[in-house]
Simulated scan of single mutants.
Amino acid sequence: MGRNLTKFVEAAQPVKYMGGFDYALVHCPRCDDMAIRRECHVTCGSCAYTDRLKRKPKVKPVEPSQTVMCPECNRYVGTYRSDLRLHRLRCRGCGWAKEPTARQWPVPKRHKRAPLWLDIDFRGNSLWAWNDQHLSFMEAYVAAGVRDVSPSNSTIASRLPAWIKSGKNREDLLRALAKLRARLPENMPPTI
């Protein structure tokens, strides 16, 4: 028992809740270098990428309505536009009918987020941190032998998975967190 373990006091931490971090470090979608995501907007200092630019909405060309003639008796049946739902068409002369086609709903687009910059695989689990402050919090928590945490279940420390809280993974977790710390640049850009 010759280890000199520190004490972790959650009340002394500058950020106690996940919503307290105002930015995240992510991979730039353009150059794959480190970028900053703040309020769902990504800005890269290396390639000057930003997704804050207003884009013109895509305008679909409107097709004119088409006149439908009966293929049997060549009578006027009705009109429709291909961008609107096709209603049932029926010829009053010969009884020919065209049923509406099944409407294909588009697959919802998933919101694509840039992957986190500070993310590493740890024994099949994802060990990640939002930013340098979150990484410092994780290092202090893992290194501590005695952890004084809040009894509520809404703080960062209370939401950590059991494999991070376990003391048997302490040394390996500290090495993995050191690898994440090495990914940060020497002189972090100002985040304000």
Score class of each variant (00 low, 15 high):
1 M>H: 14
1 M>V: 13
3 R>W: 10
3 R>P: 05
5 L>S: 09
5 L>W: 08
6 T>F: 03
8 F>V: 14
13 Q>A: 10
13 Q>F: 02
15 V>R: 10
16 K>I: 08
16 K>G: 02
17 Y>C: 02
17 Y>G: 01
18 M>S: 09
20 G>I: 02
20 G>F: 01
21 F>R: 07
23 Y>I: 04
24 A>Q: 06
25 L>K: 00
25 L>A: 04
26 V>G: 02
26 V>E: 01
27 H>G: 03
28 C>N: 06
28 C>T: 08
29 P>F: 08
31 C>S: 07
32 D>L: 14
33 D>H: 03
34 M>P: 00
35 A>W: 02
36 I>R: 00
37 R>M: 13
37 R>S: 14
37 R>Y: 01
42 V>K: 00
44 C>L: 09
48 A>Q: 15
49 Y>E: 04
52 R>A: 04
56 K>I: 12
56 K>V: 11
58 K>P: 00
59 V>E: 15
59 V>K: 14
61 P>N: 12
62 V>W: 01
62 V>C: 08
68 V>G: 06
69 M>F: 07
71 P>W: 12
71 P>R: 12
71 P>C: 12
71 P>E: 07
72 E>D: 09
73 C>G: 04
75 R>P: 01
78 G>I: 10
79 T>L: 12
80 Y>W: 13
82 S>P: 03
85 R>C: 07
87 H>N: 12
87 H>A: 13
87 H>T: 09
90 R>F: 09
90 R>S: 15
91 C>M: 09
91 C>H: 05
92 R>V: 12
100 P>S: 04
103 R>A: 11
104 Q>L: 14
105 W>V: 12
106 P>L: 15
112 K>E: 13
117 W>R: 02
117 W>S: 05
119 D>R: 10
120 I>V: 09
121 D>W: 06
122 F>Q: 04
124 G>L: 07
126 S>H: 07
126 S>R: 11
128 W>C: 03
129 A>F: 04
131 N>D: 15
134 H>F: 02
135 L>W: 00
135 L>H: 03
136 S>C: 03
140 A>K: 09
141 Y>I: 10
142 V>W: 08
142 V>P: 05
142 V>K: 05
144 A>S: 13
146 V>K: 05
147 R>H: 04
147 R>P: 08
147 R>W: 00
152 S>R: 13
152 S>M: 10
155 T>Y: 01
157 A>H: 00
160 L>S: 06
162 A>I: 07
162 A>L: 09
164 I>D: 04
165 K>S: 11
171 E>A: 11
171 E>P: 00
171 E>R: 10
172 D>P: 01
172 D>M: 11
173 L>S: 03
173 L>Q: 06
174 L>Q: 14
176 A>Y: 03
178 A>D: 14
179 K>L: 13
179 K>E: 14
180 L>A: 05
182 A>P: 03
184 L>T: 08
188 M>E: 07
188 M>K: 07
189 P>V: 08
